[in-house]
C-alpha cells in the first residue's frame, strides 16, 4: 500500500471544538508479518510500545 495523501489538503474543513486524530500517513505493512503479529499491528506507524518500568 502506498501513502494515502488526498486528505492532506482538507485542513480548512476541520471545524473547531471537535476532536480529530491525524490520518495514518504511512500505510505500508511490516515486511515480516510474524513480527507484525507479535507487535499487535501490521502498520509500523501505529506501533507505540509500552516503555514503562516493571516491578522488580
Amino acid at each position: 500500500m502506498q501513502e494515502w495523501k488526498p486528505q492532506m489538503p482538507y485542513m480548512e474543513q476541520f471545524p473547531a471544538a471537535m476532536a480529530y486524530v491525524p490520518w495514518q500517513r504511512n500505510c505500508n505493512m511490516y515486511e515480516n508479518l510474524d513480527e507484525a503479529y507479535k507487535t499487535g499491528t501490521i502498520f509500523p506507524e501505529l506501533n507505540k510500545p509500552f516503555t514503562g518500568r516493571r516491578v522488580q
Binding site: 507484525a36 503479529y37 501490521i42 502498520f43
Partner: peptide, 14 residues
C-alpha cells in the same frame, strides 16, 4: 492461520 487472519483484521479496520 492466526497471523494471516490478523492481517485480514487489520486490513478490515483500515
Amino acid at each position: 492461520i492466526g497471523k494471516v487472519d490478523f492481517v485480514l483484521k487489520e486490513l478490515n479496520l483500515y
